[in-house]
Nucleic acid binder design. Structure first.
Length: 359
DNA sequence: AAGCCGGGGTG
DNA sequence: CACCCAGGCTT
């Protein structure tokens, strides 16, 4: 059968890249922290932090991370707790776990020198096709397509691709076009340029097509479909969950924290011990923590919204009796001033003046 | 193909 | 409040 040719695929790809690069020289972002200096290690850490996380949010974390883990050897040799603490608040904590594992692999298998091919990069934990392409292109100038959220939006509009995001009918042609448009020269700048265009002009809502260097080649702009491409993803209503955490204080005003299992919500982070909502606190503390408690007091519940569910967190504060001995390695006392990174809502609770952790 | 994984920005 | 963000991994 005959299919209508897609205008975006017919055009000379060099013209797209050329127009984009000319625009980039004048209007692109040239002062992002990971661009100066642009080492493979810094590009890699930045790319992982930037997965599903906005640039403005990442910058502060990136600078702090680099100050503490200046190179891949330092990162590989660090403790998991130290790495997780520097990720606390960023979310998607599997990224930090994978980052640490990948650092160890790069030291062990590559003597600390990053591999330069997409396939080798993709074999490292936490690096998928798009991130591998970004590292290869930006760190080494190796030709490789990227397809992050920005590039997807730009290319989908160029091609007026109406397929539903998340389906292969959407992803496959996008990768094909991403390869076609990626030039053999100036791959570092091109990779940055298409992301910058998506971040500054070809935005999800209210794209500024009047200033777009690709407007005269954009099929969506030509037929006025740019505001409904890509189609929004309908999300199921978020279920409501409840849980309870314990704020256990000892005589020295230290608080008891629990290292969470690697998988699941807040995986690998230290948090307040989580118990059943209707738990008998005294009995539970005696049996699970091996300590007697006094001054059991209910605190103000806090509410936290996740992407896929909402959580109402009840909090019970108790004072640990004498001779409190915590045997479990996943439970540890921490001073308020020297505690590890904890999830954002827990940090908020612990830092809240009204909670007044002191008894 | 669909679900899981966070916290913050934006309209 | 809805939707998204320099996605990847698991099932």
């Amino acid at each position: 059968m005959t299919t209508k040719p897609n205008p975006a695929t017919e055009r000379a790809p060099e013209a797209i890249a050329g127009a984009l690069l000319t625009w980039f020289d004048a209007h692109g972002r040239h002062d992002l922290p990971w661009q100066h200096p642009r080492t493979a290690y810094r590009v890699w850490v930045a790319e992982v932090m930037l997965q599903q996380t906005q640039v403005a949010t990442v910058i502060g974390y990136f600078n702090a991370f680099m100050a503490h883990f200046p190179d891949v050897h330092t990162l590989a040799a660090a403790s998991n707790d130290d790495v997780m603490a520097h990720w606390a608040g960023l979310g998607y904590y599997a990224r930090a776990r994978n980052l640490h594992a990948a650092a160890k692999a790069i030291v062990a298998e590559y003597a600390g020198e990053f591999p330069r091919t997409v396939d080798e990069l993709m074999a490292l934990p936490g690096i998928g096709r798009s991130t591998a392409g970004a590292i290869a292109a930006q760190a080494f100038g190796v030709w490789a397509p990227i397809l992050d959220g920005n590039a997807k939006r730009v290319i989908a509009r160029l091609a007026a691709l109406e397929a539903k995001p998340g389906t292969s009918a959407y992803e496959k042609p996008l990768w094909q076009l991403a390869e076609r448009y990626t030039p053999r020269v100036r791959v570092i700048d091109y990779t940055q340029a298409i992301m910058d265009l998506g971040a500054t002009l070809c935005t999800r809502s209210r794209p500024d097509c009047e200033r777009c260097p690709l407007a005269d080649r954009c099929h969506a702009y030509a037929n006025g479909s740019q505001t409904r491409i890509p189609a929004p993803r309908k999300r199921a209503k978020r279920p409501q969950h409840e849980t309870r955490v314990l704020v256990v204080m000892d005589e020295a005003n230290r608080v008891l924290l629990e290292k969470r299992p690697p998988a699941g919500i807040w995986g690998g982070l230290w948090s307040l011990p989580e118990v059943a909502v209707d738990a008998d606190i005294s009995v539970l503390c005696e049996r699970r923590l091996g300590l007697s408690v006094e001054n059991v007091r209910e605190l103000q519940p806090i509410h936290h919204g996740f992407t896929h569910f909402e959580l109402r967190i009840h909090a019970t504060r108790v004072q640990a009796g004498d001779r409190a001995r915590i045997m479990d390695a996943s439970l540890q006392w921490f001073a308020a001033t020297a505690r590890p990174g904890v999830p954002a809502p827990i940090a908020k609770l612990l830092d809240s003046p009204q909670q007044t952790l002191a008894l």
